[in-house]
Computed example of a mutant assay.
Amino acid sequence: MTSMTTTSTTPVPGRRDDGPIGAYVTALGHALRGPRAARRDVTAELADGLHDAADAYVEAGMPEREAQVRAVRECGPVADVAAEYAPELAAVQGRRTAAVCALSMPATVLAWGLTWRAELPSTPAPHRQWRLGVLSDLTDWAGIAGGAAGCVLAALLVVSARRVVPVRLVLALLVILCGGAVLVSTACSVVMNVANAELIEWMLAGSSAAVALSLATGVISAWQLASLCRSANLAFRRG
């Protein structure tokens, strides 16, 4: 299997995509699982290789369609080719998810810590007291742990792409560890917001930074969960 880093997407004059090679590449595109851009790179690279092989047969005197059929046949069944590319594509998705968690989770913890310190002391506190307790610390530690796990697993995914460590095993660890951290952090945040509903409303009313950060946190959490779901689909799917 060739490397994805040498992909060429430049159309070659005279090549048609509606023949046996086009049908084969289209079927492979549907069979592959992974990030869209990575799948597009794989199919473009493979199409180039198949056309090169078919061109060589044409130059040797074989009719074009027969040359394409032979090139496709020599490449192998779509299912087998898709299976060969599966670890590479899974590793790409895993690295993206690990990067999202490694960067966003500690950054969110830091941003909220700075916001709390900057906003609360400068505003008179209402009669009620904040009820944070251990949940605040647990939220922070979950974010830090999730970020650290993302860093470690991103490095492991680089190694696993070389078939040293099974990619799906690393993806499963990524989903369990980082996904668990995201869920713990989100659950604790929801409980704290409910327990301090009146004070949260008071804080948001007087702090544009807190409002902006709340919206950003929601978007980041959705991004994290979406990326983790994509990785989970590759880690735990059958076959």
Rank of each mutant, 00 (worst) to 15 (best):
H127T: 09
V78A: 04
V152C: 06
R40L: 08
R65P: 08
S207T: 05
V164F: 13
E198I: 00
L215D: 05
A71S: 13
V194C: 12
T115G: 00
I220N: 13
L153W: 01
T115F: 00
V109R: 04
M105D: 04
A148S: 08
A197P: 05
T217W: 14
C229V: 12
G180M: 11
A90F: 03
T26S: 06
V69P: 01
G34N: 02
V72Q: 03
L228S: 05
A91Q: 01
V100D: 10
G147A: 12
G22D: 06
G29W: 01
S227Y: 02
V194I: 14
N193S: 15
S208R: 15
A47P: 02
L110G: 01
G22Y: 04
G94L: 04
S104R: 00
T217N: 14
L46D: 11
L215W: 13
A98R: 06
M62W: 07
I21Q: 02
R131P: 00
S8G: 12
E45M: 05
A154G: 13
L103D: 01
G19D: 10
V72E: 05
A235S: 03
T7I: 01
L153P: 06
S189I: 06
R168M: 03
G22M: 07
G14K: 07
A205S: 03
P13S: 13
D17G: 12
A148F: 04
V58Q: 13
F236A: 08
A235D: 09
A181M: 11
P63C: 10
L135Y: 15
D140G: 12
C151L: 15
L135P: 08
P106N: 04
I220P: 05
P13D: 11
T2C: 00
P63I: 10
T6E: 09
A111W: 09
A154S: 02
G143V: 08
L215V: 12
A38I: 02
